[in-house]
């Protein structure tokens, strides 16, 4: 705020500008834009959510429950998703912390290249990501013959699903942590070391408590994306019903099933995924306040130093 004269309290400037309405639009502009925005969000976002639950529960709660638990293949898809997603999330948490640590605590040539590489999975189409792993591990892929000799199944099995899910969600935790660790700085960590803490103690008692909300935020986003990944998994999983289907793939199989029964089952599975995304949103909003408070605190301590 360089343009405000120093002797003038900021609050009067702000209230004066609001009162004089230099930033205010005519009422008809305001109302048109607000109504349009509400309409757009209602049609594009609220209506679809309502529709998922309407179709899922259209035959009653009992039918809904039966759609989910009465079908062995659907149950297996849920189990597979709950098995594969934690692997991907854990791998990316360890990677995210290590990468953010390396990038924010050390200066080395190629740091920008490293950050770009972390972002790459965002720029690659999930289908292309799946294809890359098929080229590596497929029967006619580079490691395919060797894997077959040693009787190791990666493609069309859970390891490939875990691999592509990890690939697609790789940037989430690292991207959240880099700005947080950058803002917090390393003073407290250096202080801990100089007071006699070893590296491990410093990491668990100083670094982790400092970054915990940012870390959790990254985990939540990573988890949501991992559970919902479709394109990449579709390419590598082989879509063996009851064996290699994850929840989103199951939604597709049921949708293509053609009968009204499979159609409502497909919405039942979709409703679970929708609930997951709504919970994700709620946690995200709660965490956003925490991380922003952390960042502000960090900025203030830096200023007072």
């Amino acid at each position: 705020m360089h343009s405000i004269p120093k002797h003038m309290p900021t609050s009067t400037v702000v209230s004066a500008s609001r009162g004089r309405s230099a930033q205010e639009d005519p009422w008809w502009v305001r109302w048109t834009l607000i109504s349009l925005s509400v309409l757009v969000l209602s049609v594009l976002v609220i209506l679809p959510i309502a529709n998922v639950f309407y179709h899922a529960f259209s035959n009653g709660v009992a039918a809904y429950w039966n759609n989910l638990t009465g079908d062995r293949e659907t149950l297996h898809a849920i189990q597979l998703t709950l098995f594969v997603v934690p692997i991907a999330v854990c791998a990316n948490v360890i990677f995210g912390v290590a990468a953010a640590w390396a990038i924010t605590r050390f200066r080395f040539p190629g740091r920008t290249i490293l950050t770009t590489m972390i972002d790459l999975p965002f720029a690659i189409s999930p289908v292309v990501a799946g294809l890359m792993f098929v080229l590596l591990f497929g029967a006619k892929g580079y490691f395919g013959p060797w894997l077959q000799q040693h009787n190791i199944q990666i493609l069309n099995a859970w390891p490939a699903i875990a691999l592509v899910t990890t690939f697609v969600t790789l940037p989430f935790v690292a991207r959240e942590l880099i700005p947080v660790m950058e803002a917090i700085g390393s003073e407290e960590e250096i202080a801990a070391i100089s007071l006699g803490a070893n590296g491990w103690q410093m990491f668990w008692r100083v670094t982790i408590p400092n970054i915990k909300w940012g870390l959790l935020y990254g985990v939540i986003l990573c988890n949501a994306r991992a559970m919902g990944e479709f394109g990449a998994v579709y390419v590598v999983c082989g879509r063996v019903i009851g064996k290699t289907e994850t929840m989103p793939i199951r939604v597709n199989t049921l949708f293509e099933g053609g009968t009204s029964e499979t159609y409502s089952s497909s919405f039942a599975v979709a409703s679970l995924l929708t609930m997951l995304s709504l919970v994700t949103l709620f946690i995200k909003i709660a965490l956003e306040h925490k991380t922003q408070a952390d960042l502000k605190e960090a900025a203030q301590t830096h200023q007072t130093e």
């Binding site: 969000l41 049609v43 976002v45 529709n51 919902g228 793939i249 949708f255 995924l273 709504l278």
Partner: peptide
């Protein structure tokens, strides 16, 4: 409404496809 803007990020794309195909089909809500 502000937080609803983020829903497309959190919602699995398969669900988005499924529900949009149902909304705009000949007997759908829209």
């Amino acid at each position: 409404f502000d937080s609803l803007v983020d829903l497309p990020f959190a919602l699995p794309t398969a669900v988005a496809g499924l529900v949009y195909s149902s909304l705009y089909a000949h007997n759908g809500w829209m």
